[in-house]
Simulated assay, not measured.
Amino acid sequence: MLPSTCSKVSLRQRPIKDDRLSLYLDYYPPIRNPKTMKMSRREYLGFYIYAKPRTKAQKEYNDAIIMRAEIIRCRRQEAVINNEFGFMDREQPKADFLEYFEMKSKRHYQKWEIVYLHFKRFTNGKCTFGEVTVDLCNRFWEYLLSTTQLRHPKLMLTVNSAAGYFSTFRALLKEAYKERLIKENINDFLEAIEYEEVKKNFLTAEEVKALARTPCEIDVLKRASLFSILTGLRISDIISLKWDDIRLDADGEMAMFIRIQKTQKESIHPLSPEMLALCGERSFGLVFKGFNRSMAQYPLKEWLKAAGITKRVTFHIARHYELSLSLNLNSLQRFVS
């Protein structure tokens, strides 16, 4: 008797033109199509029989085709049962791993898309599930440590970027294994890329004060940056923040209700009047309209320079300000308001 969670495979017939019947397999419950990664109930076999056989030859033809279809049905049922016990369907190794990777990258944050593009470049745009082996993954490990950046081909990928990208790739392998699309947990045989200790430049209390006092040619850049410093939000979350995300919490206080893009975890942040002031006048859609990643490059550097800050500081590092070690939130809010 089949397990209750195992799909039952039945042979069905569907009328088509010229008084014929098309044979197909019906999976119930549906199974995942290894090519499209979508749930599917039907698999058409490309076999046709006479709807009303009139001659002995037509009857014998129907019997022979139905027998062949029944053999395939039995094989598919066996494959479904094996898949329930962790074994792979015979067709699965031929499915497109890159297509699966691309689909997964669109459901996660931006780093997944970058890793997908690196892996696509590494495999020259072709890779099936059957080709995803420990050896291939180790060679991708070596590739990340010796390749250039996607946006800046003349610059090498940093060790820490490579470490982060390989960690994301291992997360993909974990998902594929959990979905039984690869038959062994390859992560058990892979070594992580070790991160290098990097001395980062953080903004001090006096530097944030100077930044808050310094005019910025792009108003939304200044407001978004100071809002990030106060809340600790990443640039991706600042860009996607909507007014619908800012509303009253259970205590009747204004707060941010957001899903952090990097971790995909829901989070609630209380908002002070100073934080709300940086958001501007309440409206619809995006809070920081017009703000984009390009502003965090040259325009941010010019604003930092105007404030007398000469050390290299990125938007990402600016939010990890040093103030948490010496100031409380209230004092910080006073000098940016």
Results as ranks from 00 to 15, higher is better:
92 Q>R: 05
114 I>E: 04
73 R>V: 03
50 Y>V: 06
75 R>N: 13
279 C>I: 11
206 E>S: 14
62 N>E: 01
126 K>Q: 15
188 D>M: 11
202 F>M: 09
310 T>F: 12
135 D>W: 07
147 T>L: 10
97 F>E: 01
74 C>F: 08
65 I>C: 01
320 H>Y: 07
31 I>Y: 02
205 A>C: 12
105 S>C: 13
3 P>A: 12
272 S>F: 12
67 M>N: 12
155 L>Y: 13
317 I>L: 09
151 R>W: 08
231 T>D: 02
62 N>M: 02
162 A>F: 03
64 A>Y: 04
70 E>G: 10
235 I>K: 05
48 Y>W: 09
214 T>Q: 13
81 I>E: 09
58 Q>G: 02
45 L>E: 07
193 I>R: 01
80 V>H: 00
225 S>G: 09
335 F>E: 03
121 R>A: 15
269 H>N: 07
113 E>R: 05
283 S>V: 07
176 A>V: 09
166 F>D: 01
112 W>S: 00
45 L>I: 14
226 L>E: 02
131 E>I: 07
295 M>K: 01
226 L>Y: 04
28 Y>C: 11
8 K>N: 13
189 F>Q: 14
225 S>R: 04
296 A>D: 01
235 I>D: 02
25 L>P: 00
258 I>V: 15
197 E>Q: 12
244 D>C: 10
205 A>D: 09
201 N>R: 11
2 L>K: 11
84 E>I: 05
246 I>S: 00
69 A>Q: 02
142 E>A: 15
207 E>V: 05
114 I>C: 05
84 E>S: 08
10 S>E: 15
220 V>H: 03
113 E>F: 03
222 K>I: 04
209 K>S: 09
229 I>C: 00
310 T>A: 13
152 H>G: 03
271 L>R: 00
9 V>I: 15
245 D>G: 04
220 V>N: 03
18 D>M: 09
209 K>V: 02
131 E>N: 08
201 N>A: 12
196 E>R: 08
220 V>A: 05
336 V>L: 13
293 R>L: 04
250 A>Y: 14
80 V>Q: 03
239 I>R: 01
82 N>D: 15
246 I>F: 06
124 N>Y: 11
263 T>R: 07
154 K>I: 07
320 H>V: 02
106 K>V: 08
330 N>A: 15
234 R>F: 06
228 S>N: 02
26 D>F: 14
48 Y>L: 12
254 M>E: 12
251 D>S: 15
2 L>N: 13
31 I>E: 03
39 M>P: 04
176 A>P: 05
103 M>T: 08
280 G>D: 04
168 T>I: 12
337 S>E: 10
244 D>W: 10
277 A>N: 11
105 S>L: 09
85 F>R: 08
290 G>M: 11
116 Y>E: 06
180 R>N: 13
